[in-house]
């Protein structure tokens, strides 16, 4: 368990949030043009990084807004939190 600094509400317990998986997976611009391999890549394949990972979170039991997070998955330390649409902070 850890604390998360929601960009809208401030620091809250992790149990108030839901993890939304890997961030910055862009929805295909022309879905009808996609091959099966490209669909599989978009829908299912994940980096699943051990180390610094960019991910989406939702303050589900709070403001219910989505935001992004940079987190070290090997020790659950949060490196940065930033809003949707913002560029990820450069490491």
């Amino acid at each position: 368990m850890f604390l998360i600094n929601c960009p809208f509400c401030g620091e809250r317990e992790q149990s108030e949030f839901k993890a939304g998986g890997e961030a910055h997976i862009v929805r295909p611009k022309q879905p009808t043009e996609l091959s099966d391999d490209e669909w599989a890549e978009y829908l299912f394949m994940r980096k699943n990084i051990k180390g610094i990972q960019f991910e989406r979170w939702n303050h589900f039991h709070g403001c219910r807004k989505w935001f992004n997070m940079v987190r070290d998955t090997s020790n659950d330390q949060i490196k940065a939190v930033y809003k949707m649409g913002e560029k990820p902070p450069v490491k």
Binding site: K18, N48, K50, E55, T73, D76
Partner: peptide
């Protein structure tokens, strides 16, 4: 529900 390799849970 989050990815973690820490062998700890909430």
């Amino acid at each position: 529900d989050y990815v973690s390799y820490s062998q700890k849970g909430s």
